[in-house]
């Protein structure tokens, strides 16, 4: 119906003012306008998430340092802060560029070119999604971060990790138990009930090496001791400068939840983008848009969506990985 609107029989009007009716004041088809306004509203959805992220982050005394959290890459690369996510960002930028090329070929009504660049864009989107899958797997499986647990945080004060002997000397009671089929040793403060929140562990790093005696300053980041053998996230014990024995605190829960939620929501957009790109690539190959004679407008609208996904990533990248 929309094709035979007022526009057709008043098309002869050559009035200077675009707002006088019978033509688009923005010289854009209704489909393109609708895509723009949908993207505007989607931007507000993401804004809702990112502003919530900001509010929660501002309400927390500490927040994990990104270049400490995101420092692994596939194939066993360790201590390479932000390198993998830079790769992911580049994948998305390149897929955006190939999308621009697809739109240009569409404008030229070059079917083969449009399909070629669309396929490259699909490959880019799929690569990004795979990278994200690896990143999530690493964070969940190896680092122990989940929507309810955040093993990354900052120290509020300076101190030194304690060894088992020092803990026993301080009057802590040593408990040896079996957890998930492996031995676990922890310490209870005097008169404390044996519940998970009261358990103090000797701090060990990722490889299981004891970190007793190591000193740290306020603001240093830390990762809660993670025991591969018994799958426990353990509060390491340390002595503050004023001589008090304390245990490490988990980082703000909200970090993990927000990270998985917002990157997941963005990933969902990438995923649906890949699905739509595939459909459109098939349609282009089938010659559907040639029949419509509108310069492959569907490819252009899809391009807007795909660039929007890239645009959102700019801000996700900013708030989660850079700041």
């Amino acid at each position: 119906m929309a094709t035979d609107t007022a526009l057709d029989h008043h098309a002869d009007v050559q009035d200077g003012n675009l707002w006088d009716g019978a033509k688009s004041p923005f010289q854009a088809s209704y489909g393109k306008l609708m895509m723009w306004y949908f993207l505007l509203s989607d931007a507000f959805t993401f804004a809702g998430f990112l502003i919530s992220y900001g509010a929660l982050r501002f309400s927390m005394p500490t927040w994990p340092v990104p270049d400490f959290v995101f420092k692994s890459a596939p194939f066993g690369v360790e201590n390479a802060p932000l390198i993998f996510v830079t790769f992911m960002t580049f994948v998305l930028i390149i897929s955006s560029v190939t999308m621009v090329r697809a739109v240009q070929e569409g404008h030229r009504e070059n079917k083969g070119g449009a399909v070629f660049w669309l396929l490259l864009t699909i490959i880019g989107g799929a690569t990004f999604l795979s990278s994200q899958a690896w990143e999530w797997t690493n964070l969940i499986g190896k680092e122990g971060m989940s929507v309810t647990t955040n093993p990354f945080s900052n120290f509020n004060e300076s101190g030194k990790y304690l060894s088992a002997e020092e803990l026993e000397k301080a009057g802590f009671q040593k408990v040896e138990t079996e957890a998930h089929g492996a031995a676990a040793t922890y310490f209870l403060r005097p008169r404390a009930a044996d519940v998970p929140e009261n358990r103090y562990f000797v701090k060990a790093d990722h490889h299981g090496h004891s970190m007793a005696g190591e000193e740290f300053a306020a603001g240093n980041h830390f990762l809660i001791t993670y025991n591969h053998a018994n799958h426990l996230y353990e509060h390491g014990a340390y002595m503050a400068e004023d001589g008090h024995v304390k245990k490490e605190e988990f980082g703000p829960q909200a970090f993990g939840a927000l990270f998985f939620f917002i990157t997941g929501f963005h990933g969902f957009h990438v995923f649906s983008g890949v699905v739509f790109l595939t459909i459109i690539a098939i349609n282009v190959a089938g010659g559907l848009y040639v029949k419509r004679r509108n310069g492959y407008e569907m490819v252009e609208k899809m391009g807007l969506y795909w660039h929007f996904v890239d645009l959102v990533w700019v801000f996700v990248f900013l708030v989660f990985y850079l700041l």
């Binding site: 019978a22 004041p25 949908f38």
Partner: peptide, 20 residues
């Protein structure tokens, strides 16, 4: 949202001749 984008686009794009 489906209604909203439609209403906005219709008002912007589909006004008849002279309907500024």
């Amino acid at each position: 949202l489906l209604g909203g984008v439609n209403y906005i686009t219709t008002v912007l794009n589909l006004r008849t001749k002279g309907m500024n």
